[in-house]
Amino acid sequence: MSRIDVRKTYKLYIGGQFPRSESGRSYVVNDAKGRLLANAAQASRKDARDAVVAARAAFGGWSGRTAYNRAQVVYRIAEVLEGRRDQFEAELRASEGITPAKARSYVDAAIDRLVWYAGWADKITQVVGNANPVAGPYFNLSTPEPSGVIAVVAPRGPLLGLVSVVAPLIITGNTVVVIASEQHPLTAITLGEVMATSDLPGGVVNVLTGSVAEIAPWLASHMDVNGIDLTGVEDAQLAADLEAASADNLKRVRRPAPGTDWLAEPGLDRMTRFLETKTVWHPIGV
């Protein structure tokens, strides 16, 4: 007689913990062939609110760490992901119905992307910062700083897509509330387990699963969210509404990016869109 599996309960990832949705709701997640994979937590607006509180609480500490330290932590996520690659390949195959080779290539790319971004932590300031030669006796330096708490609607790619939108935000010191792909939420929670065991402080990344149309408007109108990345919003009208709601506190907005090739090298834009430039002046004298 074969052994009965112990199935995993997929919950949310908020503030370093894995709570169920406070609403008590869940929704059915099927595999590519329409068979039940699991019940995912269906996050509510209150879960989103809690996630923002957790992200805000984590922001000071995370953005205050040295760039070198953030690099180490993000690199550590890559290491732990590498160690659990079999699990992720299996999950990707199950949820997306893709070949083993394809699943492997996505996991490879996700790990490599984390490593790529890890290296940016202590270089982005050098690339986008400036010493400014003002016409006067002043020291004048512009440096990038993270915008703060960023809400993200992740694209469909359950692992590579998610990593590609989250890594560029946290590497620069932002903290994140991400709504996982509605169709493929399970990998996001498993990735949460990786982050939770990678020295990433609780609250730096918070993962919600559920309905984008239900949760995203609460994040877009939230006055303590500094930016919103609409990459995964597929409905153009919803994207426009979310952008309009974001105007309430002038969130930095990244518009949807349909057709993104997630395997291509990303460039700087995902980092710079959620960076502020601070310019400091000081007189030069004796």
Partner: peptide
């Protein structure tokens, strides 16, 4: 976006200006 230390209201074409929040 701009911090003036021991000075204030200084502007220059080479110096980026703009806000947070």
């Amino acid at each position: 976006g701009v911090v003036w230390a021991n000075t204030f209201n200084k502007f220059d074409p080479t110096s980026p200006f703009g806000g947070y929040k």
